[in-house]
Write a protein that binds this DNA or RNA. Structure first.
Lengths: 372, 372
DNA sequence: TCGAGAGGTGAATCGGTCA
DNA sequence: ATGACCGATTCACCTCTCG
């Protein structure tokens, strides 16, 4: 009896071969429906951001910014975007193994909606990770803060669900310090950026370093990684390099073609080269205003050059005022001396504990106190 | 007609005295209901994070981590949390002026829900800002990434709504580079951390540097700042220091008492320290013609672009002439380049004392000489 | 061959104020 | 609502040109 029952179950759940190393063309929700339950180790998704751009944006020099206006990124309301999000997340949840994980990347335009919906569906957030761009596009109009980061959400199937985290690999990658939830990485450019006749193939190609870290952190060798918004195949290329299996969904044949060509050229890494990967830590930079902000130098403090020829006053935002002139520590020092340039850190001095010292000494103090 | 209409509006909106410099005790939604419409310049909110910690969290050495387990921080479900969030955001929206702004800080536990709901209510996100902690608590169990940041959302009343951003002050604070959406600041500790008998008064006291930057960036001197989750009054302390008015809501008398004592001790910065670098938009405007009128640039002077492709001539009224074309410094620069726009101040150059410099330098000279 | 300098560009919700 | 007009505005990195 027990044998027979087992056989029946097997017959019903007939083994389905996964389309490994393939791109499923068409709508990603439809494509995922063709895949069996509990079969995927990791879903990495870079969904459209639901950008609602106004008119054209010009740089200060008059040239025009190439905006993301592809039709796959047009949603005219939150409702439509939310429905779309719930649909693909539901399918992703079904095909993921119980110990599988989901990563989503987005910006402030969409990430709050995506995050709330995946929580509603039962996903359990393990970390939100900030991709801090080392070279973001500036805010040309000077109307807001430079939009210098994007947000990733990493989650498991549920509060009690198992998941994989290669703690040791991350610590090694980060110079023997725990990997933090903020990652500094450059945007995708140079040789890595796919171009066709001088123009970019995909408007929002992600850097391989980002996918590299995601997969190294949360998958094992041989795991199956699915990307519902495959684009030009960054996920596939990195998966192949790291010895992971991959499946993509993509409806634009231009992207599909470029992706297959790209992944074909990719070579898998051997174990030893993985182990030698090390991240470089940048020397920290400190702005004068940060010293003021943190109370190292109080607004109102007198600040002067070595010979006390000029005695200026520190203001709340870290600017200086001398008689009628105002400026940064570098700019005002330059103006007063009539010099072509000035290193304010060594030019300006303050009195501290009865001793006169360059403000650079205060910066050193701050660096020591805030070192990781 | 217009005058009469204005008078009528004034009569209807009878002046209500705001409880400036006071903490309203009790539930924040009830407290906000007592305030009039369109009366607040900035709401800064640090709502409970809805942390769902299971058992106690222990350090590797066995000592216990002081987790956030106060009773005000427990919510049974997302539903309750969402309703609560919608309630206080709705009141905040009502009492905010049309050009007022809202800041909310949160972690991955709650920020996605808060962000989605404030979008649903009509708030328009201007930036999400990442507070990157220079000294976060490590992940003791080694099971995830070190949770090293929190997220802030800055939004206006709507897509077309006005808002305030002190671009110039932020740029000065950041060593003459645009302020980015990621801020590196230490967590609150040391002398700044309020303690009572050796234990922290509040589990999630925010650093003053964070509020300092928020207020310097998005409020003006004298503005009214409201904090619905006042806690130990970091918002009030920084507001007082920076010459802003404040109102708090808080239901725990332990926090209220500590906050009032703390703010009492705080000293406002003096007038001159408080002045920040003005954005050029607010700075006194100088027409090019004024420079000509005052002899800073003589009529007949040759004026040219950086590459000397176009050499125009200055006329008595401050207009330029190039061959048959005439116009303002902006208009002619735009015409000649065929550009959508042109900042004539940086486009046109003149020779002065043998040196070539943008006419903007002459404007600066004039501004310095005529500043009151 | 190398360095200096010019030119291009990246997921962007990017102006204000009159008539 | 719409348009005219005034005037304010960019950082890091890659690639190409020129000497």
């Amino acid at each position: 009896m027990r044998e027979a029952s087992k056989a029946r179950v097997k017959t019903i759940a007939k083994p389905v071969e996964l389309p490994l190393g393939q791109i499923l063309s068409g709508d990603c929700v439809e494509a995922m429906r063709s895949l069996p339950d509990n079969s995927i180790d990791l879903v990495f998704a870079d969904p459209p951001y639901n950008l609602q751009l106004g008119g054209d944006l010009n740089r200060p020099d008059g040239s025009q910014v190439d905006a993301v206006t592809d039709h796959w990124d047009q949603f005219d309301s939150f409702k439509i975007y939310d429905d779309f999000t719930r649909d693909w997340l539901t399918e992703a949840r079904r095909i993921l193994k119980p110990d599988g994980a989901l990563w989503v990347i987005g910006s402030y335009h969409n990430i709050f909606r995506v995050g709330a919906i995946l929580q509603d569906l039962g996903f359990w957030i393990l970390n939100d990770v900030v991709w801090r761009k080392s070279n973001p596009m500036p805010n040309f109009k000077g109307t807001r803060f430079t939009n210098a980061h994007e947000t990733l959400i990493w989650c498991s199937q549920g509060e009690k669900a198992k998941y994989h985290f290669n703690y040791r690999a991350m610590k090694t990658l980060n110079d023997e310090l725990q990997m933090r939830s903020d990652w500094v990485l450059p945007i995708c450019g140079g040789q890595e950026r796919l171009k066709e006749g001088g123009t970019k193939v995909h408007p929002t190609q992600k850097p391989e370093a980002l996918l590299y870290r995601v997969m190294l952190a949360t998958t094992e060798k041989g795991d199956v990684v699915l990307d519902p918004f495959f684009g030009t195949g960054t996920t596939g290329a990195v998966a192949k390099r790291l010895g992971r299996q991959w499946i993509g969904c993509e409806r634009e044949s231009v992207y599909t073609d470029a992706a297959l060509k790209r992944i074909e050229k990719e070579l898998p890494l051997d174990e030893s080269s993985l182990e030698t990967m090390q991240s470089k830590r940048n020397a920290p930079k400190v702005a004068f205003g940060v010293l003021v902000e943190n109370g190292y130098i109080k607004p109102g403090t007198e600040i002067f050059d070595k010979k006390r020829k000029w005695v200026a006053k520190v203001r709340a935002d870290g600017s200086l005022i001398y008689e009628k002139q105002v400026g940064s520590i570098h700019g005002l020092g330059k103006e007063l001396q009539g010099a072509p340039s000035c290193n304010g850190w060594t030019f300006w001095h303050i009195e501290r504990d009865g001793k006169i010292e360059a403000v650079d000494a205060v910066r050193q103090l701050y660096l020591l106190a805030t070192e990781d």
